[in-house]
Design a protein around this nucleic acid. Structure first.
Lengths: 219, 219
DNA sequence: GCAAAAGTGTTCGCCCTACACCCATGT
DNA sequence: ACATGGGTGTAGGGCGAACACTTTTGC
């Protein structure tokens, strides 16, 4: 059982990694994980390990990524592993043990086994779902201005995003709602921005984008 | 390891099921599956079991669905199972053992354990991917008229599809290409239809639908 | 007044749907 | 000729990107 945990920190999308000190793969970085207990589900196991070893309790989203099974993926006896994609909101800063740290994806160091491929798969799944779901709620703090939210999307997607269009798209889809509050303008002046929140703090598909959708039953 | 295998047969999307004769869950229908060998990947295992026990060799598509892990999902010792989604083209008719059969989804009989939920998950994944990928190639025969392809999509999606729009969408996306051949008209007359094929017989995402896509680098 | 940042109006193009119409064949 | 099914033309709506413009603040 492995966890691909992302958090936007500063301008980067970061991945939680753990430094291996023993062979095999000593001095490389690995995904956090561990054995599954006999009476827990895989998801419970992920949450347990992350809470116990890494003090990451506030996981805003957790989804099964995939199960890897290559007999050669790991030296020694055949080892299956189910990887999960986890997200942590950008306003939290969980305390980490000395051997674990956040690494910007892209500047990721050498990773153990097939963990690098799993991290890429997780990153791509995150990026895809940011486009057609409300998954941003899992990366963003409870409240934010459009500019702050834009920074989260830019970090996660890895390319520029227009604040104007981000605002319009997410409001039209009723993903965001204004809180009514107005934030303080930047030190350099400027119009004070409105604060927003995500309407739902649970996963929702907002744009089925279903081409070939069922014909309109006109009223 | 379990397999959720679909094929369009006639007007129905059908699921391959196997009749259990022993307890637990005697006289219910179950997904085909079996144990994973020590030196094979999960995917190899799915292919092996289906080829050996069910004579389904020509799987046009195979994708991991998810791994279920509930300790109570199965009586007795805790049993993990990774489910795969498999598709068989509609022009094949593999010979099946006496205890296995195709069942129209929707008219599915009582299923064992959590297999019903896995079947639904597989069906929904198939339906979603038909909209934004070229996955139709895995359900359709090598050549077909638009009317025949439409029948496949109607069966798989479970709702009506306009032949006019299906044609245009799939041609614009360069998913289909004409073979140049013209089929015989129906017995009742009518203009003879052109034959088409899928341009790629491998999985391809044709409509990233990526809202929030990277800004245009205008030339 | 001026710079800076937020927010709005507007245009443009693309894509999908729906529906009317034309085409090619059998009877 | 007419019915039947295949194929094309076209109009309408929706949505997102781009960009100009207005609003509200600090200096």
């Amino acid at each position: 059982m492995l966890a691909v945990v992302f958090q936007v920190r500063g301008d980067d999308l970061c991945l939680l990694l753990w430094r291996r000190t023993e062979n095999p793969c000593a001095d490389t970085w690995a995904l956090p994980g561990g054995a599954v207990g006999p009476d827990e589900t895989l998801e419970q196991s992920v949450r347990r390990h992350l809470a116990a070893k890494v003090d990451v309790r506030e996981m805003s989203y957790l989804e099964q990524l995939r199960t890897v099974s290559d007999p050669l993926r790991h030296p020694g006896p055949r080892l299956l592993a189910t990887a999960y994609l986890g997200l942590v909101p950008s306003d939290l800063d969980p305390v980490l043990p000395a051997d674990t740290a956040w690494h910007p994806v892209g500047g990721t160091p050498a990773t153990a086994f097939d963990h690098g491929a799993l991290a890429i798969a997780g990153r791509d799944r995150l990026r895809a779902k940011l486009s057609y779901t409300n998954l941003g709620y899992a990366l963003a703090p409870p409240q934010f201005t459009i500019a702050e939210l834009r920074a989260v999307y830019v970090a996660a997607l890895g390319h520029d995003v227009s604040a104007t269009n981000l605002r319009r798209v997410l409001l039209r889809r009723a993903v965001l709602e204004p809180t009514g509050e107005i934030a303080q303008p930047d030190s350099a002046g400027g119009r004070p921005p409105a604060r927003f929140r995500f309407r739902d703090r649970g996963y929702r598909v907002t744009d089925p984008a279903a081409v070939l959708r069922p014909p309109q039953s006109r009223s």
